[in-house]
Design a protein around this nucleic acid. Structure first.
Length: 1090
RNA sequence: GGGCCUGUAGCUCAGGUGGUUAGAGCGCACGCCUGAUAAGCGUGAGGUCAGAGGUUCAACUCCUCUCAGGCCCA
């Protein structure tokens, strides 16, 4: 067999077979080697964390990554595809922590939640940091095998043999180098950061953890009234009191300022009776705070803007804590974040206990007081509340406020507040000492580098990412955790300003004055044993306890994956920056940011990165979420998570990949509906397979293969030249879409071509040509279809790498993944022919509709079809034969506008009329539509005419109207948009006979099929029945015999052995008894020579 | 509270620069074909383009607001 048929198995089995072949051939390695010396197209793999199972959304992102890499590789680029693993960080720690909790619970015989309540850090310190980190290092690989297997199964080609691993010594050393470099540029600094903090667990929580722990709780709602002070710092005789709202009374101890919105209006009110003071609050909140009937008791004595209040001094509610020497305090500041939706429109500021407060503190140079320890208790020496957990101190604080006549009113209210997911303790927003990368110093550089990136979609770059960059704050990179790249900062324990940042293991060895041991491990706790005497002679250099943000690891991968600058400088010089990266939109503030921030801060320490126009990636494709079939986000708790393996098994990776990419643009959220996969991508792939298996291979196996005998393209029929012209056009368009990072349009274009042009039209119109083996026409058809299928395989290979490879190998003997994406010398596009074919297909649709109206089935020949087309009649009329056979009519005529058969109508072209006539346009359009055939004739000759509209003569040019030609006459007419057909439904006796003959042929073919004869088997055929049937068969005897491969055709009396419905028909292989429009017919056949 | 995205037929999606009757696929209905057959093809019915204003001779398209959904951040 020249052309092997695809095995008759499901997609899963087919694909697994192909995978086995790829593995045996080492096809990925081959494809890399084949292009090793070519120009690189650099791809960076964003490293996943392998301590969770990969889901269907990972298949999505990986499909996109793979398809662009595959496309560029087929274009001839060398595409490095190094795998990577993100191995540090909180998700890993949490997994291990849960394990520890389970083990401890089992030991104590209690529920794990009981252990969780004890808090996180205790358990870890109980097993020891060394053991904890050992388990983290192990845990991180828990699902590595599954990730690799799924990548393999979905044909995500990646070099998993040489991955980068963020915890490896080499990777860590490169990260240290980066931090050291930033330190040298004075970009690594100490500061504070407000973090959600669990006092019981002694740990800050990530935003993801915080989101897990929201609970409705009752908290105090407290208003205090604070005295405004005069310029001399005393309260005036007539006290003016400003109302301030808080839900955390304990933070009042640390109050340093009040914030008002500068544009908000504030009202000052005085009690109608016995007023010894006035109060000030936002005008919009007066009713809310004082009650709906406030006007009965209060007079408004004045209003002012927030900006008028800014700068005023006031007296703080509690004076338990001394203010530090530096920083302003007891001052009103203007802040945009203040709202008048609740409270009093005046916000109390405690910079140590709120992100807004802290930021405001920075902006206004406010004092910073933090009388709370790491356990969430007021520190020793605080009056009244020392040693109390802050939330527990609220009651005592309220009492004191009341005693001091500062409390205005207090109540309780329900709101949603975050709690620790481990132990249920309410979280505190708490200022922690932290190390920062001063990205704010480089904001302009971040923006200008970002502007050089080609974002897909562009609005992520300008909007979500760009907006965020322009509000950039310093990147807090330290974490009070255990499993991470240790911050390589050593500080003198006698002098906190004496800092040494270590940038390599060699430097560390030099500091300690001896080589590092063979079993050196840069992780905690081992790294913390390295200390050395300070240069000054007093104190010891000790490492700070923190590890760094794991995003810093992944953002360092462009150089750290190559252990730069310690090794591989040439590789990084050639492979930085990336041409292409692709991740989910959730990476905007993650990897997309860390790559950009690190590259920008490192500047010319990296190759090709000196000036501010270089970004670490040139093109980004951002993909959105995969939702379930109902449009809901997939989550474990909802139980709607799709297992990718089940999906692969049911539909195959090709269908899943194609569906994910083609169903909608990758940057909008998509619904994952398995029915939709089957109905769209699955159905398409079946059609694709059928065209190869069912048409090409089945018939080409009778003896065709490419040869010099195949007619040159120019000598092939119009149908062949047409599909080849389409092929060239589609090839160029798909390639262009992929060059532009638009996978969706590219996929849809190939699918549409295969479905619409190849299957629906080319193959269908060519079917008969494939049966007639060895004619020139047959050779033209096979040569054409071979070319079409081969090129289509290549175009489709990035999307559906399995079936295209199988078909491409069957057609050419070579893997599609080693083939070029586009041909060097495609058949030129024939614009005229394509337009003409479009016309023919439009006419065919109309003619089918006409047959429907006339109620004559296609098998019955009809005498004639008249056609009207708006464009080039000559080109279309050359395709008349196609129409004649598609519609089964004896004659196709093209009638032109000069024919008497055609009447003309006109429709206004609003685009040109609107420009000429403005407001009068509708009137003119109406007048134009009313014109008759004869009045319109001059326009078809290119002349102007005049119409009267609104009582005025208007000049109408040919461009101003669209002329519609309508066939007129007795025939069945269908027309649309300038196209028209007129079908003559007359059935003459001759045509009736021919129709019957075709009916007989059709039934014999069906019978052959039922009898399971091979398409090449010869038969003996017997026909009996109604006179008219016999007459028709007699008249078309040789044609029937030809078409059904009847060696002998017995008719009527010649049959001899009588037909029977009950027994002796057994002499025949198959029989058929029925009727055609009331005329009886009996058929019987047997294989010839049996 | 802020930023960004989305809302067009039962479903999934197209609809430069405003302009004739808003398109396609799937599904559905009806039919065709029967040498791609657990396939192939045609025709048809489905839409107040989320809602309300505005600009314009003309708005799915531009502007404003509202509503709903999503993501990120506070």
């Amino acid at each position: 067999m020249l052309y092997p048929l695809l095995p008759d198995t499901n997609a899963d089995a087919l694909e697994r077979g192909i995978l086995a072949q790829w593995d045996a051939e080492k096809l990925f390695e081959q494809s890399q080697a084949a292009r090793a010396n070519a120009k690189p197209f650099v791809f960076f793999e964003g490293p996943p964390t392998a301590n969770g199972r990969p889901g269907i959304h990972h298949v999505f992102a990986r499909t996109i990554k793979d398809l662009f890499c595959r496309h560029r590789a087929m274009q001839g680029f060398y595409v490095p595809r190094k795998a990577g693993w993100d191995t540090h960080g909180l998700p890993v720690e949490i997994e291990v922590e849960k394990e520890l909790q389970r083990e401890e619970a089992a030991r104590q015989g209690v529920d794990p939640s009981e252990i969780a309540k004890l808090g996180g850090k205790q358990l870890i310190e109980q097993v020891g940091v060394a053991e904890f980190n050992r388990r983290c290092r192990e845990s991180v690989w828990k699902y590595r095998g599954e990730w690799e297997k799924l990548s393999h199964r979905t044909a995500y080609w990646l070099d998993y043999d040489n991955p980068y691993v963020t915890y490896s010594h080499d990777f860590v050393e490169s990260v240290w180098w980066a931090l050291r470099t930033m330190h040298e540029k004075s970009l690594l600094v100490r500061g504070h950061k407000i973090l959600p903090y669990c006092a019981r667990c002694g740990t800050a929580l990530s935003s993801h953890e915080v989101a897990q722990g929201y609970d409705d709780v009752e908290d105090p709602s407290v208003y205090v009234a604070l005295d405004l002070l005069d310029a001399d710092g005393n309260a005036p005789a007539m006290r003016r009191r400003i109302l301030v709202w808080t839900t955390t009374p304990w933070t009042l101890v640390s109050n340093t300022a009040l914030a008002v919105h500068p544009d908000l209006t504030y009202a000052e009110l005085r009690k109608k009776s016995g007023a010894e003071f006035t109060i000030i609050l936002a005008e919009a909140r007066v009713a809310g705070v004082l009650g709906g009937d406030w006007a009965d008791r209060w007079d408004v004595i004045g209003t002012m803007k927030g900006s008028d209040l800014a700068g005023r001094r006031y007296r703080r509610p509690l004076d338990w804590v001394d203010y530090p020497a530096e920083g302003r305090h007891e001052i009103i500041v203007p802040e945009e974040f203040v709202s008048a939706e609740d409270g009093s429109g005046v916000v109390h500021m405690a910079p140590a206990f709120g992100a807004d407060d802290y930021a405001a503190g920075q902006r206004h140079g406010l004092a910073f007081v933090q009388p709370v320890n790491a356990r969430g208790e007021f520190v020793e020496g605080t009056p009244e509340v020392a040693g109390l957990f802050v939330k527990k101190a609220d009651a005592r604080i309220l009492e004191v406020l009341k005693e001091r006549d500062v409390l205005w009113k207090a109540s309780q209210f329900m709101h949603s507040y975050p709690h620790c997911w481990r132990c249920g303790t309410p979280l505190l927003y708490y200022a922690r000492g932290s190390w920062f990368v001063r990205t704010t110093a480089l904001r302009d550089a971040l923006l200008s580098r970002n502007s050089q990136v080609n974002w897909n979609p562009s609005e992520v770059g300008t909007g979500r990412f760009g907006e965020w960059l322009s509000n950039n704050v310093d990147w807090a990179i330290s974490r009070d955790r255990y499993w991470g790249t240790p911050l390589p900062v050593w500080v003198n324990d006698e002098d906190p300003t004496d800092i040494d940042v270590i940038g390599s293991y060699a430097d560390l060895a030099e500091r300690i004055g001896r080589p590092l041991p063979d079993d050196f491990d840069p992780h905690k706790p081992h790294i913390d044993q390295y200390t050395w005497p300070a240069k000054s002679g007093t104190g010891t250099m000790r490492r700070v306890p923190e590890v760094i943000d794991t995003w810093f690891d992944s953002g360092s991968m462009p150089f750290a994956q190559w252990h730069y600058p310690f090794e591989n400088k040439d590789i990084v010089a050639a492979q930085f920056p990336a041409d292409f990266i692709c991740e989910g939109v959730d990476q905007t503030r993650g990897w997309f940011y860390s790559l950009l921030a690190i590259a920008t801060t490192l500047g010319d320490a990296l190759p090709n990165n000196a000036h501010d126009q270089a970004a670490p990636y040139r093109n980004v494709v951002v993909n959105d979420l995969v939702l379930d079939a109902q449009g809901q986000k997939m989550s474990k708790s909802k139980g709607n998570v799709v297992n990718p393996w089940d999906v692969m098994e049911r539909h195959g990776a090709d269908a899943v990949r194609l569906f994910l990419v083609a169903s909608s643009q990758v940057w909008v959220p998509r619904r994952f509906d398995e029915n939709a996969i089957r109905e769209t991508a699955g159905r398409f792939l079946l059609t694709f397979r059928n065209v190869y298996n069912g048409i090409f291979a089945q018939y080409a196996n009778f003896g065709w293969q490419p040869s010099a005998n195949d007619p040159a393209v120019a000598d092939r029929p119009a149908l062949d030249r047409w599909i080849l012209s389409r092929l060239t056009r589609v090839e160029a368009e798909v390639n262009r879409h992929l060059d532009n990072y638009d996978a969706t349009l590219a996929a849809r274009r190939v699918v549409q071509f295969m479905d619409d042009d190849v299957s629906k039209w080319y193959v269908r119109q060519s079917r008969a040509r494939f049966y007639d083996i060895d004619s020139a026409d047959n050779r033209a058809a096979f040569a054409t279809l071979h070319e079409v299928l081969t090129v289509t395989c290549r175009l489709l290979a990035p999307f559906a790498p399995f079936i295209t490879d199988a078909v491409h190998r069957a057609l050419t003997g070579t893997s599609v993944h080693l083939a070029p994406y586009t041909r060097e010398q495609p058949t030129p596009v024939d614009e005229t022919l394509e337009t003409a074919m479009d016309d023919v297909r439009t006419l065919a649709g109309l003619a089918h509709a006409a047959r429907d109206v006339a109620d004559v089935k296609v098998r019955q020949p009809l005498p004639s079809l008249q056609c009207v087309v708006p464009g080039n009649v000559t080109a279309v009329s050359e395709l008349g034969a196609l129409l004649a056979s598609e519609l089964n009519v004896k004659q196709v005529e093209f009638v032109t506008s000069t024919d008497a058969l055609v009447s003309l109508e006109a429709k206004a072209n609003f685009r040109t009329l609107g420009k000429k006539f403005g407001k009068e346009t509708p009137l003119v359009a109406e007048a134009v539509a009313a014109l008759g055939s004869e009045q319109l004739r001059p326009l078809t000759a290119g002349e102007n005419i005049t119409v009267v509209a609104g009582g005025v003569e208007r000049l109408i040019a040919p461009d101003d109207v669209a002329i519609i030609r309508r066939a007129s006459g007795a025939a069945v007419v269908q027309e649309n948009g300038g196209y028209g057909v007129a079908l003559d439904p007359t059935i003459t006796p001759e045509l009736r006979e021919e129709g019957l003959a075709r009916e007989v042929i059709s039934r014999v073919q069906r019978l052959r099929k039922e009898a399971q004869l091979a398409v090449s088997d010869r038969i003996v055929l017997a026909v009996s029945g109604d006179e008219e049937v016999l007459g028709a068969v007699a008249a078309h005897r040789s044609r029937i015999a030809d078409e059904v491969l009847a060696a002998r055709l017995l008719l009527g009396d010649e049959v001899g052995s009588p037909f029977s419905d009950n027994g002796d028909g057994a002499a025949w292989t198959a029989t058929h008894t029925g009727d055609v429009d009331g005329r009886s017919i009996r058929l019987a056949l047997t294989k010839d020579g049996v």
